[in-house]
Write a protein that binds this DNA or RNA. Structure first.
Lengths: 225, 225
DNA sequence: CTCGCTAGGTACCAAAGCGTACCGATTCTC
DNA sequence: GAGAATCGGTACGCTTTGGTACCTAGCGAG
């Protein structure tokens, strides 16, 4: 299971690999070998909207494997307090992979974007298993690089795409992982994720609505196309 | 040895961890245990300016450990042909770490930014050693996360910082790794790295020069402050 | 020395986005 | 049901940046 890319998106010039071709969408935890799973105290968690799972500059106690439908955002806060999203993680990834791979603190915050369930594993346990199970390690390392590629793409989009394009890309990324076309979020929240003004989001959503790409009610956006 | 961050930069609101506190600057290859080094066919290479070391969507044959003074840029090209830098690697990192960690192809191009020497190791060898030497693995994984954090920072800067701030950050990043205050590059080249117009770079450099932060001759910029 | 190429300085207009503000509409709370 | 809080629509002026273009200075080749 690899990270999103490719699949033409409207006429906006935004591309992202589709997840449509992925036969069965499940947490990567499910692809761990049984003997590895036995060594992990996996705990089911219900994650609420906007719940903070991890904080930048701290080391988390657990890492989370979102189940299909649950989406988590990784954000970074600047010196002046602005918060911007750098990447999102759904069932295809691991929230806290940074801490599994490296002994340092997290470089970003992790916030629940779309509520849902996740499996949670103590960080230390996963690190131990990753250390002596090559299969698990390969899966985690690959997941890490997939995320790195995602963040790289975000860096570029932030540079050369306009607001409407970035909004479209963001919505599709969430849609693929949330597995539904409606997401509950306010323009204000979106503006924080995209790092723009709230009013700018309102205008961009309005334009996309005129184009028939989305529709929206109060605090909800539905993707049509 | 950890990745750049923190250290106030002029009055531009740009921060980056300083490398000034790093006692001895050397390739991370030098921190590998001897028994690991013996298993690697390390080859010294002289890297020329603008040399392409790796291409996106391909799997490299070697990975490179730049020696102090040598700097490599990782860039990504968009669907419309625009090339933008997502991160830089110097003596503190590994060019091609993505391919060591994951079996997939590179997500970016690698281009020599400041010529110099680098040690080069066959990818397959390094993967093998990383697989059964925990120390090497830890070093590489940490280096990978450091790079991920760098790219995350790039994503944010691309969103909320203006051209002059991004230019300052870029110059400092290169300076730290190149270990000299003068770098040979044209405004045109810089504009590709930063993903802006060449004329925009000219103006930004001019303003920084007025502020006494840099000076420049033809195809060269010197950092003063 | 001259031609030609490359680097860089400058300018003008248009588009995108920001800061700010105001106000209406919906929802929540008591 | 009334007041408060939240959400979102809209507007205006300003800054940054992009697109484009033209011109000059330095450098190298013949």
């Amino acid at each position: 299971m690899s990270f999103p890319n490719v699949v033409a998106v409207h006429n906006l010039g935004v591309w992202e690999k589709g997840m449509a071709d992925i036969a069965r969408q499940q947490s990567i935890l499910d692809s761990f070998p049984p003997q590895a799973l036995r060594r992990l105290s996996i705990e089911e968690q219900s994650l609420a909207n906007h719940e903070a799972l991890m904080k930048a500059n701290e080391r988390p106690e657990w890492v989370y494997f979102p189940q299909p439908g649950c989406v988590v955002s990784l954000t970074r806060t600047t010196e002046v307090g602005t918060t911007v999203e750098v990447g999102i993680v759904g069932f295809e990834g691991v929230v806290g992979i940074q801490s599994v791979m490296s002994p340092g603190p997290m470089g970003s915050d992790a916030v629940v974007q779309v509520s849902g369930n996740a499996s949670r594993v103590p960080l230390s346990e996963l690190r131990a298993v990753s250390d002596d199970n090559a299969t698990v390690r390969e899966i985690l390392q690959t997941s890490c690089i997939d995320f790195l590629n995602q963040v790289s793409q975000t860096a570029i989009c932030n540079r050369i795409h306009n607001l409407e394009q970035r909004l479209a890309k963001w919505l599709l990324g969430v849609r693929d992982r949330a597995e539904r076309d409606s997401v509950d979020l306010t323009h204000d929240f979106l503006s924080n994720m995209l790092g723009v003004r709230r009013a700018g989001v309102t205008v961009a959503v309005g334009e996309m609505e005129l184009d028939g790409l989305v529709k929206h009610d109060r605090a909800r956006i539905t993707i049509l196309d």
